[in-house]
Amino acid sequence: MSVEVRVDAGRIARLLRARGGIVERNLRRRTVRVADIAERKAPGTMGSYVSWHIETGPRGLQGVVQCDHPVVRYVLDGTRPHIIRPRRARALRFQMGGRTTFAKYVRHPGTRANPFLQEALREGR
């Protein structure tokens, strides 16, 4: 008596990569975990702009976590010292020490980079 087992590698690979397959479920779980960490690490209200999706790319399925807040690039990369000038008025108006202050310009010291998306990816692995 003999037993023969044939493995169709192509079919196994298609089953694993199929929508809803094992690989996609695992990728979805990991992508959601990274997105949740990014939401928690994002400064201010930026966490509400974090989203995720699964897409088929040139190398197969990919989990994508993104933040589409208008100033996310400045937060991720930081800024150099710069001057802020009014756009539509003759002076800037802001609160400082509980008092209203007016100025023709302000020397901003710049901000440090906050790579919260990269940190979330590292923690989510």
Score class of each variant (00 low, 15 high):
56 T>N: 11
50 V>T: 15
115 P>S: 01
58 P>R: 15
11 R>E: 15
33 R>M: 03
27 L>Q: 01
121 L>F: 09
16 L>E: 06
3 V>G: 13
100 T>D: 10
101 T>M: 14
19 R>G: 08
85 R>E: 11
17 R>F: 02
75 V>A: 01
108 H>N: 10
27 L>F: 00
76 L>N: 04
13 A>Q: 10
20 G>T: 01
32 V>A: 12
83 I>K: 09
18 A>M: 06
55 E>C: 08
111 T>C: 07
87 R>L: 12
24 E>F: 01
112 R>C: 14
18 A>G: 05
96 M>K: 13
30 R>G: 11
22 I>S: 10
64 V>I: 08
14 R>S: 05
56 T>D: 02
11 R>D: 11
33 R>S: 01
15 L>E: 07
10 G>H: 01
67 C>R: 05
19 R>T: 10
12 I>S: 01
73 R>N: 10
6 R>P: 13
15 L>D: 06
112 R>Q: 15
120 A>K: 03
99 R>L: 11
89 A>P: 02
61 L>S: 02
112 R>F: 13
42 A>G: 08
17 R>M: 05
123 E>M: 10
107 R>C: 06
107 R>G: 07
64 V>D: 06
16 L>T: 05
97 G>A: 03
28 R>A: 05
83 I>W: 09
60 G>D: 01
69 H>C: 02
100 T>P: 04
119 E>W: 14
31 T>G: 00
27 L>P: 01
67 C>A: 09
118 Q>F: 12
59 R>N: 09
48 S>H: 13
55 E>V: 12
72 V>M: 09
81 P>A: 08
13 A>H: 04
105 Y>E: 14
19 R>M: 03
10 G>F: 01
63 G>P: 12
70 P>I: 02
8 D>N: 05
26 N>S: 08
49 Y>P: 03
118 Q>W: 10
77 D>L: 13
119 E>K: 12
21 G>P: 00
46 M>C: 05
11 R>P: 08
73 R>W: 06
51 S>V: 07
117 L>S: 03
1 M>V: 13
55 E>I: 09
105 Y>G: 10
96 M>E: 15
59 R>Q: 06
53 H>P: 05
116 F>K: 11
36 D>R: 13
99 R>E: 14
40 R>C: 04
67 C>L: 02
89 A>K: 15
71 V>G: 15
90 R>K: 14
84 I>V: 03
101 T>H: 13
110 G>L: 07
69 H>V: 04
82 H>W: 04
10 G>M: 01
46 M>L: 11
53 H>D: 15
114 N>Q: 14
69 H>I: 06
52 W>T: 03
14 R>A: 08
110 G>E: 13
108 H>V: 05
85 R>G: 04
115 P>R: 03
17 R>P: 00
81 P>S: 09
